[in-house]
């Protein structure tokens, strides 16, 4: 779905490349969490996925990146947006209509879909993001969390094959955040959508991820399944892995190795239960 080869980009006016020699292939149906310290290049990489780089942000691009076989150079952001849906950090940048329903319908209408199909998709997208009651509301009347749900619904309604989300849950309370992530994970299951999620907060996202990619100073430094990546403590300086994974890494350091680092509380609980129950048997 996504193939990056030796991809580098330096913003105009900057001396340092924002990403450097990135090689990354993402297959259909993967759920990739892209993380790393601020300024590591993850947002820059995401901007290459929908053509904002090089179309909108100027600078020097080298190497190549193809999205479903299409090279991003020479294609406009609007062409790429049919393949790649993009949810930004700040929902205010994405909502502009007078009602939420209009915002969600904008994408499918633009794709030239029949009215009935547009309506179906709008209903579905608003349902799955939990904003069905807010149809008539104007974006400015909503809380930050509700706005982000609306922004996600607007992208969902286009049913892109790849969905890129740049810290989509940062304005949401944890319960709403996990509902959104669960909805995204469902999309992957049901529609075999490919997900690229940029996230600092790994505690909620980890259990859905099939793969964690850690970037630092423009390069990919770690890439693998969550359990494997979270076990590589030495290379994770500055990455906020889930507390539960930290706990198992600490225990391992102290000589209690209970296998792979768990990435969710459920997994950790099971591991400890089975380990300590033997104790009684």
């Amino acid at each position: 779905m996504i193939e990056a080869h030796n991809l580098s980009f330096t913003y105009a006016g900057s001396k340092r490349p924002a990403i450097l020699d990135v090689n990354l292939g993402v297959d259909k149906g993967e759920f990739v969490v892209l993380t790393g310290p601020s300024g590591c290049g993850k947002t820059t990489f995401a901007r290459c996925l929908n053509g904002l780089i090089p179309n909108f942000y100027q600078g020097e691009l080298s190497g190549s990146i193809t999205i479903m076989g299409t090279d991003i150079s020479g294609h406009t952001t609007s062409e790429l947006s049919r393949k790649v849906g993009f949810v930004f950090q700040n929902p205010e940048n994405q909502l502009f209509s007078l009602s939420i329903e209009r915002d969600v319908a904008f994408g499918p209408e633009n794709l030239g879909l029949p009215k009935e199909e547009t309506r179906r998709r709008v209903d579905w997208a608003m349902e799955i993001t939990g904003i069905s009651e807010l149809r008539e509301a104007a974006p400015y009347e909503l809380s930050g969390g509700q706005q982000q749900r609306a922004a996600i619904a607007a992208v969902l309604a286009m049913k892109p094959e790849i969905m890129v989300l740049d810290e989509p849950t940062s304005f949401l309370d944890p319960l709403s955040a996990s509902q959104i992530l669960e909805a995204v994970a469902d999309l992957r299951e049901e529609a075999n959508m490919t997900i690229v999620l940029i996230e600092h907060r790994l505690d909620l996202a980890s259990k859905y991820a099939s793969r964690i990619v850690v970037m630092d100073q423009g390069r990919v430094v770690l890439d693998g399944p969550p359990a494997k990546v979270y076990g590589e403590e030495a290379k994770l300086i500055g990455v906020g892995i889930p507390k539960i994974s930290m706990l198992f890494n600490l225990l391992r350091q102290d000589g209690f190795d209970m296998g792979e680092t768990p990435v969710s509380v459920e997994e950790a609980t099971e591991r400890l239960r089975s380990y300590l129950k033997d104790d009684r048997g």
């Binding site: 944890p174 319960l175 507390k243 539960i244 509380v265 400890l272």
Partner: peptide
């Protein structure tokens, strides 16, 4: 949970 939060991971464990 009433306040739409999720307890800290260590607390759940």
């Amino acid at each position: 949970e009433k306040a739409s939060l999720i307890p800290p991971q260590i607390s759940i464990l």
